[in-house]
C-alpha cells in the first residue's frame, strides 16, 4: 500500500465525539499516523506478520493502520469505553478484525514478549505528569521487537535519558520531527489550532531475562 493511500483511508475514521481532557485525548491525525506506520513497516519490517499492540488506542487509528499494513494480530488497549466503542465501529467499517481490551495501560499484566511491536500516541504528560513515561516503560516491557511512540520535541533529551536509564530501552532513536495539529477541542485552548512539534521515536527493548535464558 502506498503512503498516500494509507493516509487517505485513515482520514475516513471517526474521531472522539466528546474528548476527555483528563486523559489528554487528542486524535492522532492521518498524516502522522500514516508516516509512523509506513516507516515501521517499510524501513524496519516491524508490522506485517507481527503481533502489534496499540497502547491508549483511542479511536483506533494506529491499530487500524497496523492491520491495514498486514499485522497478523492487533490489540488496542484503552481505559475509556466510549473510545473503544468508536474504535470498534471504525474497525467494522474497514472490515478489519482487531482485539480490544478495556484496561488502564499501566495496570495491564501481560506475559512478556508475545507482542512484537507496540505503537502508541501516549498522553504527553502535560495534564498528568509522567504519564508519557509510564506508557513507555510498559511498552518496552511488553514488546519484544520495537516501540514506536510520539513525544513532544521539547522533552527530547529527557525522553532519551529516561528511556535508556529507567525503561529497559537498548536504543532510542528519533526517526523524524512532525507537527501535531491540535484542533481547538477543549475550552482552555485559546487559539483556533495550535501545532506542536513532536518527535517520532523508535525504541528497541532489551530482551527480558526469560528469553535471554532460553
Amino acid at each position: 500500500m502506498k503512503l498516500k493511500q494509507l493516509e487517505g483511508l485513515l482520514g475516513t475514521l471517526q474521531q472522539f465525539s466528546h474528548p476527555k481532557v483528563e486523559l489528554e485525548q487528542y486524535p492522532t491525525g492521518p498524516h502522522i499516523a500514516s508516516r509512523l506506520l509506513y516507516t515501521a513497516e517499510n524501513t524496519f519490517g516491524d508490522i506485517s506478520g507481527k503481533v502489534v499492540a496499540d497502547f491508549g488506542c483511542g479511536c483506533g487509528t494506529l491499530g487500524l493502520a497496523s492491520a491495514l499494513l498486514g499485522a497478523e494480530q492487533v490489540i488496542g488497549i484503552d481505559i475509556d469505553p466510549q473510545s473503544l466503542e468508536i474504535a470498534s465501529i471504525n474497525a467494522a467499517d474497514m472490515e478489519l478484525d482487531i482485539d480490544f481490551i478495556w484496561c488502564d495501560v499501566n495496570k495491564l499484566r501481560w506475559r512478556d514478549d508475545v507482542v512484537d511491536t507496540v505503537v502508541m500516541n501516549p498522553p504527553f504528560g502535560t495534564r498528568k505528569k509522567g504519564s508519557d513515561m509510564e506508557f513507555l516503560a510498559k511498552a518496552l516491557k511488553v514488546a519484544s521487537q520495537a516501540v514506536y511512540s510520539l513525544h513532544k520535541t521539547t522533552t527530547r533529551d529527557y525522553i532519551k535519558r529516561t528511556a535508556i536509564r529507567d525503561c529497559n530501552a537498548r536504543s532510542a532513536d528519533i526517526l523524524c520531527e512532525l507537527r501535531f495539529d491540535v484542533p481547538q477541542i477543549y475550552k482552555f485552548h485559546k487559539k483556533k489550532e495550535v501545532n506542536i512539534a513532536v518527535d517520532l521515536w523508535r525504541f528497541v527493548p532489551y530482551p527480558t531475562q526469560e528469553s535471554a535464558d532460553s
Binding site: 494480530q73 482485539d99 481490551i101 484496561c103 499484566r109 506475559r111 508475545v114 507482542v115
Partner: peptide, 13 residues
C-alpha cells in the same frame, strides 16, 4: 477477543 489475546492476559489484581 481471540484466543491469542487470552494467551497473554494475566489477572492484574
Amino acid at each position: 477477543m481471540r484466543l491469542l489475546t487470552h494467551n497473554m492476559l494475566s489477572c492484574n489484581i
